[in-house]
Design a binder for these strands. Structure first.
Length: 414
RNA sequence: GGAGGGGUGCCGGAGCGGCCAAUCGGAGCAGACUGUAAAUCUGCCGACCUAAGGUCUACGUAGGUUCGAAUCCUACCCUCUCCA
């Protein structure tokens, strides 16, 4: 157990990438006490795909772990049946036990890319909820009032707009709160949108005679659109398990205005450097692209390793920036004679479809018309063109395929 | 139990008998430009057809009325709100 020693590291833990801590003093005290803390983190089996937005909190967990504290990951197999009401009023379909299990597995694979598995305890809600009876539910719910729940922002809004709030949804925060009791959490982590839920856990613990958990809220990461919080349903996310080149590229595509917040929340760039970067960005003394490259590489390194990150960087430089053809291109074997037209020309639009480069022929024709298709660096002006086995077809900037004639497999020279 | 809204393309959301493959916004794709897969601008954005034209699918489901329906009628399914 490493006691927190310097004020400096304490500052870093409690200030950098933190939205709010309730209560900060108490948490600092706990950290100094040398007690091994139980850090609660919920896993939602209905949404098993993690993205960079989740990474913010996970990195924090990791930092706590490095001081010897223990993460308790709760698989929300019961709450998954309700679905977090934070969004619309759509009740999600109940997940089967198998689905929950499969999702939890995927989730954990991603989770442990960042969080230390050795210092994590995994608990399933069903451990305590399977024998939870009606009387338990009543006694749990009698500890809260409707007014109390209506304070919650989205409930409040919906209530005033006359939109429905189901009882099950009301139950959701209660169950989540009880989780804290069940595992005797010392600190619970979440995004700022979870504030209400986490506070409820605190209250419940207290009313049941446990010492209340501290609430650790991290800011919500803005998604690649530069506007809304990163979320899967808004499709503005960068997934943790995406291929390294994609992660790198997507990071490169975030709006410049997001650079500093990404650096702050997703990397360990020292605060002093951060300030410097911020300043040089403001004064245009640095090309934002260079900073983004650094950021992208850092993130890929965390999710994979340094070598992979370098490869991704290299790929970006060559393929995206210099528009070179990548080394590894998927190959497609086709019978050229199937596409033969006349005068040694082939119907490329059909080849694009057969090769899986494009979904439909209409689309292929459109792309050709837009000048987006080229063969061996020669832009197509119509759907017909000559073709030799081994030609590289390029669609748009990033789709490549090498087309090989099945029929000339045997090396017959023409 | 009563009254009243809705169900449209990936999403949001118009249209309410022909001009609708369906306004608009977002997403996506492409082109130009660039400091980048930022920003900006432009175009595309159901499928099929040897194709500035044509055909077929499509507006909850099934029928019907019309020369003609996403638009009207009937039934059904689903969903929401309000009153009790």
């Amino acid at each position: 157990m490493t006691k927190i020693t310097s004020d400096h590291s304490l500052q870093r833990l409690l200030k950098r990438g933190v939205a709010e801590i309730i209560t900060e003093d108490k948490l600092a005290e706990l950290l100094k006490s040398g007690k091994r803390l139980r850090l609660k983190e919920g896993l939602d089996p209905s949404a098993p795909d993690l993205h960079l937005g989740h990474m913010v909190a996970l990195r924090k967990l990791r930092q706590f772990q490095e001081l010897g504290h223990k993460v308790v990951l709760i698989v929300g197999d019961w709450t998954a049946r309700i679905g977090d009401p934070s969004g619309m009023s759509i009740m999600r379909p109940m997940l089967s036990a198998e689905e929950v299990e499969a999702n939890a597995k995927t989730y954990m694979e991603q989770f442990f890319k960042i969080v230390d598995k050795e210092k994590t305890e995994v608990r399933w809600q069903s451990e305590w909820y399977n024998q939870f009876g009606l009387s338990d539910i009543i006694s749990l719910s009698s500890r809260f009032t409707v007014a109390q729940l209506l304070v919650r922002d989205d409930f409040n809004q919906r209530y005033h707009q006359g939109k429905p709030i189901s009882i099950a949804e009301i139950l959701y925060p209660l169950l989540q709160a009880y989780d804290s009791v069940a595992i005797k959490a010392d600190v619970e982590f979440g995004g700022t949108d979870q504030k209400f839920n986490l506070l409820l856990g605190r209250e419940l613990q207290e009313s049941l005679g446990q010492s209340p958990q501290q609430v650790f809220l991290v800011p919500l990461l803005v998604g690649t659109d530069g506007q809304h919080k990163m979320s899967k349903s808004l499709k503005n996310y960068i997934g943790i398990t995406e291929p390294p080149e994609d992660i790198y590229g997507k990071v490169m595509s975030i709006p410049d205005s997001l650079i500093t917040s990404y650096l702050e929340l997703l990397t360990d760039t020292p605060d002093s450097d951060l300030e410097e970067i911020k300043e040089s960005l403001e004064h245009n003394t640095v090309n934002p692209m260079e900073i983004k490259k650094m950021l992208a590489k850092d993130i890929v390194t965390q999710l994979y390793d340094k070598k992979v990150a370098e490869k991704a960087a290299d790929y970006f430089l060559r393929v995206v920036q210099k528009k070179e053809i990548p080394q590894a291109i998927p190959e497609f074997y086709l019978k050229f004679s199937d596409f033969y037209q006349d005068n040694g020309r082939y119907d490329i639009s059909r080849i694009l479809v057969s090769g899986g480069l494009v979904k439909s022929r209409s689309q292929a024709l459109r792309l050709i018309k837009e000048g987006a298709v080229s063969i061996d660096d020669a832009k197509l002006i119509g759907p017909l063109a000559s073709l030799t086995s081994g030609s590289v077809i390029k669609v748009g900037k990033l789709r490549f395929a090498k087309i090989i004639n099945k029929e000339s497999e045997g090396e017959e020279n023409e």
